[in-house]
């Protein structure tokens, strides 16, 4: 029995203990998966499970009051753990169906490969490829070549927390030292290069706030200081300065909280690499406090606590 069938069966079993189950169904075309809220077991026949199911569904959890079931991948499970650290959800009200994951697909990368053609059909073969048919022909792409960046260094393919596990656990085969390699490489650039890089990227930002709203750890949402007039952090002008400020707000508020799910980057219609800023802070949290987000429910986010004597923070000399 394949994973999709097992997930369906598990979902059927957890009703009526849960009122809703959050999983995936096909989106507007074969290349897109979309969240699917099931409220009666019969609905599971529309469920899909394949590497296009990339979205981190856990973002919906804090706003749902009833008991809910949810399908999570390894990376998604880190969000749940982070929620538990911060007391944002009640564990007793979530039934977690964990699915070990071999990597998902970045739709943006596939679209680039197929020249942004409308897709006619999408199938997966048994050798780890996605085959995309368009009017102009067929393209076979190795999933590993079109996965989001996070998958290339994934340390936790098997969910770290679950009630039901689908299939067998998978161990990561990606070297741990590589997780922040991209950050170190970027850090090595000159200040001017880095400044120019961000100015070019942020200039495109239209402040649609999709990155913020899709972010599972951005929990203020409606009262986000990027939009409030009181306090008035940023104006309605469209200058680079306001855009820069908005992204610094998102990054600072995610310090030691970002679970590196990459949603912010996945959803950005302007293709801005916004997860990078938060990943940088995570790299520093690891270095300073040996803290990693979303791996242990008993941890405390580093900005929520302190040590009287900080082993790694030295006084700065002038």
């Amino acid at each position: 029995m394949n994973n999709a069938e097992q997930i369906k069966e598990t979902i059927a079993r957890i009703f009526p203990d849960v009122e809703t189950v959050i999983c995936y169904q096909q989106g507007f075309d074969g290349l897109h998966a979309t969240p699917y809220f099931i409220s009666i077991p019969e609905q599971v026949n529309k469920l899909i499970w394949n590497p296009l199911c990339a979205q981190n569904l856990t973002s919906y959890l804090p706003s749902i009051k009833k008991k809910v079931g949810i399908v999570v991948k390894g990376c998604d499970s880190r969000t749940i753990i982070q929620y538990l650290q911060e007391g944002l959800i009640d564990r007793a009200k979530v039934v977690i169906i964990g699915v070990p994951c071999t990597g998902v697909i970045s739709v943006k990368k596939v679209l680039r490969e197929i020249g942004h053609q409308p897709v006619v059909d999408v199938v997966f073969d048994d050798n780890g490829n996605i085959v995309v048919k368009t009017q102009k022909g067929e393209k076979r792409l190795a999933i590993a070549d079109v996965c989001p960046d996070k998958c290339t260094t994934c340390q936790y393919p098997t969910p770290l927390v679950y009630d039901h596990l689908i299939g067998e656990p998978i161990a990561s085969n990606k070297p741990k030292e590589d997780v922040y390699k991209d950050i170190r490489e970027f850090d090595a650039k000159t200040l001017e290069e880095k400044r120019a890089y961000w100015e070019k990227e942020f200039e495109r930002c239209i402040r649609c706030y999709a990155c913020r709203n899709a972010c599972p750890m951005c929990i203020c949402q409606d009262s986000c200081i990027a939009e409030t007039r009181e306090p008035h952090w940023i104006s309605q002008r469209l200058s680079l300065q306001e855009k820069f400020m908005f992204h610094m707000i998102h990054a600072a508020h995610l310090a030691g909280r970002c679970v590196e799910c990459g949603e912010c980057e996945r959803v950005c219609p302007m293709d801005i690499p916004v997860a990078k800023l938060k990943k940088k802070i995570n790299a520093e949290m690891k270095e300073l406090f040996n803290y990693e987000t979303g791996v242990n429910p008993d941890d405390k986010p580093p900005m929520y606590t302190f040590n009287v004597d900080e082993a790694k923070i030295k006084e700065h000399k002038l």
Binding site: F186, D187, L191, E192, E193, K194, R195, A196, Y197, W198, F244, M248, A251, A252, A255, G256, L277, K280, I281, E284, M285, L288, P302, M303, F306, E310, I313, H316
Partner: peptide
Amino acid sequence: RRRLEMLKRLLPFIG
């Protein structure tokens, strides 16, 4: 101290 140290390390990243 923790927050400001975080910032100190973030600033060069944005140039």
